Amino acid sequence: MNEQLHALVERTLAKGVGARVFPLRWDNRRIWVKQSVRAKHKVWHRVQRFAANITGIPLLRPTVSPGGQAGLESEAATLRKLAQVGVLVPDLIDVADHWIAIGDNGRILKNCIEDDVLKGDDNAVRAYVVDAGKALARLHGEGVAHGAPLLRNMTLRDDGQIGFIDFEEDPNARMPIADAQARDVLLFVFSIQREFKKRPELLRAGWQAYVQAAGETAPQLVPLRKVVRLLRPIYLLLRPFRRWLGTDALNGLWAYRTLRKSLYR
């Protein structure tokens, strides 16, 4: 452990930072310090586990972080592993008893897209979403899954490449890799729909970019087709009541429709 960095972080924490993740200047660059938190096990996670057991669909298993030091160690191990295979993740600088320090990985992709939406730069917006889909496919090509590949957990680096942050969840250890990657895809397309619900073409662009990069015979599309098929009765049941559904439920319906049309065309 770097004693000077450790002292700086501890001094900063003692002053009160008001955030779990906060930036610092260290070694002439910006770094980020991420504090440990308690495990987030909730009733919903037990429901997920029950659904996974009943349906036989591994990707429904909960992947909540173990929290505490175990959660930090898990994320640190994931960062090391992904960096070794060339995935663009923050460099791991230090691991302490209740925090980790990582390098800066660029601007949050979701914020970059929102900025260009406000500017009316449709070409840039679409390019970002397409690049995100390709980047996720490349990550999957290395035989790993992210766990929560939402637009807010992707970054735009200085060289224009898409990187990834936030590896608290580790589906790789809780289900077959193909199922973990299928789960990634579901979360990715839902993230696009949720953030840009009035731009369905962005959802299609991100999904199509992923499939083209991963390949239509990619193993992860097998469990994805299975879960899409099993969700069809729920989709048909909810569709007539869409005007009364909440925002997330509606976004789920639209994302589901796009996936089904493509997977079963």
Score class of each variant (00 low, 15 high):
Phe167Trp: 00
Arg229Phe: 09
Leu8Asp: 00
Ala249Trp: 01
Lys110Ala: 13
Asp91Gly: 07
Gln161His: 02
Pro149Asp: 02
Glu10Leu: 13
Arg260Asn: 04
Arg257Trp: 08
Leu109Ser: 13
Ala135His: 04
Val85Ser: 11
Phe188His: 11
Gln84Trp: 05
Cys112Glu: 15
Arg232Trp: 08
Ala249Phe: 00
Leu82Trp: 02
Lys197Glu: 10
Trp244Glu: 03
Ala148Cys: 10
Gly133Ile: 12
Val21Ile: 09
Pro200Asp: 00
Leu92Ala: 01
Arg239Gln: 15
Ile113Arg: 15
Ala180Pro: 14
Val189Gln: 12
Ser36Val: 13
Glu75Trp: 01
Gly252Phe: 00
Glu201Met: 00
Ile93Ser: 04
Val64Glu: 06
Ala145Lys: 00
Tyr128Phe: 15
Pro223Ser: 07
Arg30Ser: 10
Leu118Lys: 13
Thr258Trp: 03
Leu230Ala: 13
Leu79Glu: 06
Val222Ile: 15
Pro90Leu: 02
Val33Gly: 11
Lys40Asn: 01
Val17Thr: 13
Trp254Glu: 03
Arg242Glu: 14
Arg225Val: 10
Leu109Ile: 07
Thr258Glu: 15
Pro200Phe: 01
Leu5Ile: 05
Ile31Gln: 09
Phe50Tyr: 06
Thr247Gln: 01
Pro233Gln: 10
Ala173Trp: 01
Ile177Glu: 01
Val95Ala: 08
Pro240Asp: 10
Glu168Met: 03
Leu202Cys: 02
Ser191Asp: 14
Asp158Ala: 13
Ser36Gly: 15
Ala124Tyr: 07
His6Ala: 14
Pro223Phe: 09
Leu24Cys: 03
Arg194Ile: 04
Ala178Ser: 14
Gln193Trp: 08
Phe22His: 13
Val47Tyr: 00
Gln161Cys: 04
Asp170Arg: 06
Ala137Thr: 09
Ala137Val: 07
Asn28Ile: 08
Ile31Phe: 04
Lys110Ser: 10
Gly67Gln: 05
Ala213Tyr: 06
Val43Asn: 10
Asp115Leu: 07
Trp99Ser: 04
Gly160Met: 11
Gln84Tyr: 07
Tyr210Asn: 09
Arg61Trp: 00
Val144Thr: 06
Arg260Thr: 12
Gly103Val: 08
Asp158Asn: 08
Lys81Gly: 12
Glu10Trp: 00
Lys15Tyr: 00
Gln35Ile: 02
Gly160Gln: 02
Glu75Ser: 08
Val228Lys: 07
Leu245Ser: 06
Glu10Pro: 02
Val17Met: 09
Leu59Ser: 05
Arg46Lys: 15
Gln181Val: 15
Lys119Gln: 09
Arg229His: 14
Arg11His: 03
Leu24Tyr: 01
Ala132His: 14
Gln181Lys: 14
Arg229Ser: 14
Thr247Ile: 04
Glu142Phe: 03
Ala137Arg: 12
Ala214Cys: 11
Asn28His: 11
Thr63Glu: 05
Asp159Arg: 01
Val117Ser: 09
Phe196Glu: 04
Met175Glu: 05
Ile93Asn: 05
Arg157Thr: 08
Ile177Lys: 13
Val21Asp: 09
Gly86Asn: 13
Arg243Pro: 02
Gly141Phe: 02
Asp179Asn: 15
Arg183Thr: 12
Val117Gly: 13
Leu139Gly: 05
Val185Glu: 02
Leu202Lys: 05
Arg157Trp: 03
Leu109Cys: 14
Ile192Tyr: 03
Lys134Ser: 09
Leu203Val: 12
Trp244Leu: 10
Ala52Tyr: 01
Val130Met: 11
Ala52Cys: 02
Met154His: 06
Lys226Asp: 15
